[in-house]
Design a protein around this nucleic acid. Structure first.
Lengths: 155, 155
DNA sequence: CAGAATTAGTTTCATATGTAACTAATACGC
DNA sequence: GCGTATTAGTTACATATGAAACTAATTCTG
């Protein structure tokens, strides 16, 4: 016999994946505008600069792992940054496939300028939360991240 | 004199906009794969179906407001859904610019199939949270959404 | 009511993105 | 060492996306 049970309702605005997506996109767009307007950087270029500033000499592959970017995106961001004169590449001595990436002097000064802006943007965003709420949010996000990790079956 | 204060550190993994983006993308990709694999739908097509199923006769513009999609994205998703035979368009009687959108019989049956899957996916995702944690997460996300709303200045 | 301004929705075009194919270097098995 | 399999990174191609221009219908203003 046909299924006669009524279809349950799904209100998009109450659907967690949708709410997360909208929130994340709103914030990402706002930050992307800032980086673009102030420094002519894309979000991906900025991510590459962020980890390179934190870990000079890092390889493109390692950047990918630290930034959740695929290798094509890293390759393009690095190419753009070299073009801009913010990054330089040195061949690794012990592995001719790898290259080691460093901020140039100019890149370093841009980095020194961006980091405080990024941190202040984050603080402005988080200012509506109490310190306890920030901790709690992080905890809940980590639980969800575990639940959503790719490859994990649903049950 | 030059600024001699050291640049504060920014660890990407601890940076809220980055963490949100990675979490949201992980979940979105997972769900997009499901809709694509099972029904050949994109996320945007699915969003359009979701609100049309919930509000038959809705216009493209109103869909855009309910789904945080721009009008070009709505237009393309609607065109694709009509192509697939899931949606039909009727001209509005009182306003020749608007059209009213409805699920076709086929579209309705796809909708009836997707909704339980989407809800069960959401439940699987949220299963790691207690009911109280789910409420708290929603509350924190709404606070952040208010803080991040576009156009709002930083101070 | 005529013309200007607005709105709904589509099309165009330039750019962004992901997948897969590719190149070059290294590691592995024997 | 020699051929095969891996790995780092780039390039090519097809598709997705967003901004702006466009069309058609409606509303507003005098």
């Amino acid at each position: 016999m046909p299924d006669t049970s009524p279809t349950p309702t799904l209100r998009l605005r109450e659907f967690l994946p949708y709410r997360l997506s909208v929130l994340s996109n709103t914030i990402s767009r706002r930050i992307a505008d800032l980086y673009d307007r102030e420094f002519g950087l894309t979000i991906w270029q900025w991510r590459v600069m962020a980890v390179t500033g934190d870990t000079p000499g890092i390889s493109a592959t390692d950047i990918g792992q630290r930034t959740a970017m695929d290798k094509v995106a890293v390759s393009r961001a690095v190419a753009g940054l070299i073009e801009l004169g913010y990054l330089e590449r040195k061949a690794s001595e012990d592995d001719g496939r790898r290259s080691q990436l460093y901020l140039t002097r100019t890149g370093q000064s841009v980095y020194d300028e961006i980091v405080p802006m990024a941190l202040s943007e984050e603080q402005a965003l988080e200012a509506v939360l109490t310190p306890e709420e920030r901790v709690e949010l992080t905890r809940l996000m980590e639980k969800l991240a575990g639940s959503a990790s790719p490859g994990r079956p649903l049950w």
